[in-house]
Design a binder for these strands. Structure first.
Lengths: 210, 210
DNA sequence: TATCACTGACTATCGGGTTAGTCAACAGTC
DNA sequence: GACTGTTGACTAACCCGATAGTCAGTGATA
């Protein structure tokens, strides 16, 4: 644990600044969007002035992009978690869905980042593309592989889902956006939602043996 | 059809202006977001100047809100379409899903409006709430009623989906956001996606009689 | 010719980016 | 351990282009 109240040396402070600035930038940009965020607001969050920000980042634009790069890191975490799942295909699918709720819908930072990608995507196509390559594609691939494995082992039906595996996790996105839209203004029972999701995905709606 | 090139009377022109302005505002606000859109850009789209806009709307803020109110109208259309579906529950569900793709994922205006709601929601909570009341809630209610009917008629399994019917249409949202993110940069086969969606929702992944 | 929808030049303000200047932290000397 | 010169992270005041909102004037229409 860091000692509280200890004044940092100049070198220490300088080493921490970029981190701190990106952190503050994340809060401001996600709260207000790119255009409506002032560099001064980011600075104020740290108790420094605008000039300081410009010592570390050349423009507002580059600050934004650096922030997004920084904050995308947790995504690779999800990829790693998916890789080590064990059990039958349906067990692994269950676990993957649970993991997706935990790491995406439930993580405020990831939620806000997703909103940012969608909201500012038109102005920052790099961001959208990195987002796809680092996050969406690997997850889709993992799910696709899982479904194909289940089909060839006879555990899953031969189904059109194999060619569009993304539909399996759509409710996670749905939950994420509901939480983004309503924050705490409207209650959202995620457990119920997730159980419905898993049940639907495995069993479907139709009565069996009908 | 309106005659082309016919000059409108002053009264006609004046009567049309608010419509025209809202239309132009929609294009600009959805393309650039609220903060980055200049009132002058909206005016330029009509070949008029900024002053004209302010003859019809007192502030940029009110222009934005009026635009959103105006553009929300097509949503009620979807509600009406859902109400008149016929056939068995699964037939109606299929039809409803198809309709959702057609009216939401495939409609550029609705897509952009959705992005706007998400992007600017923090600054315009009225907008989010109206969006929920006019669109999300009625659709969720309709789906919920359909599922309950199917369950009690024995056509559908007694399932957790009944308490979170939104999961049934999540892939529509997913498709909408993919199209928003990648516009035309990445191909998206909606037919395949939709077929996978319907198959999943009705039958699930697991092998039957297993 | 009277009206009024529209113009376009104007003001006030805001915010990205710059830079001369400040002062606490450090290093070297005694 | 005190004294002193140097460094460099940070500040504060500034510049300037951009944009929300205003209003006296204009010219086509009825």
């Amino acid at each position: 644990m860091e000692k509280i109240g200890t004044k940092l040396s100049r070198a220490e402070q300088k080493a921490r600044r970029p981190q701190e600035i990106l952190e503050a930038a994340f809060e401001e940009f996600t709260a207000n969007g790119y255009a409506a965020t002032r560099v001064e607001d980011v600075a104020a969050r740290l108790g420094v002035t605008k000039g300081t920000i410009y010592l570390y980042f050349p423009t507002k634009d580059e600050l934004f992009e650096a922030m997004h790069r920084q904050m995308s890191a947790p995504f690779s975490d999800l990829r790693a978690s998916v890789a080590v799942l064990e059990g039958s295909c349906s067990e692994r699918l269950r676990a993957l869905v649970r993991l997706a709720y935990e790491k995406v819908a439930n993580d405020r930072r990831i939620r806000e980042l997703l909103r940012l990608v969608l909201a500012e995507g038109a102005r920052f196509p790099h961001m959208v593309d990195r987002h796809y390559e680092e996050f969406i594609a690997p997850v889709e691939d993992a799910i696709g592989a899982l479904v194909r494995e289940g089909v060839s082992s006879g555990e899953f039906r031969r189904t059109a889902v194999a060619v569009a595996p993304a539909v399996l996790v759509s409710p996670v996105l749905h939950a994420t956006f509901l939480r983004l839209m309503f924050a705490d203004r409207r209650p959202f029972d995620e457990t119920t939602f997730m159980e419905a999701h898993i049940d639907l995905v495995l069993n479907g709606l139709l009565m069996r043996n009908g």
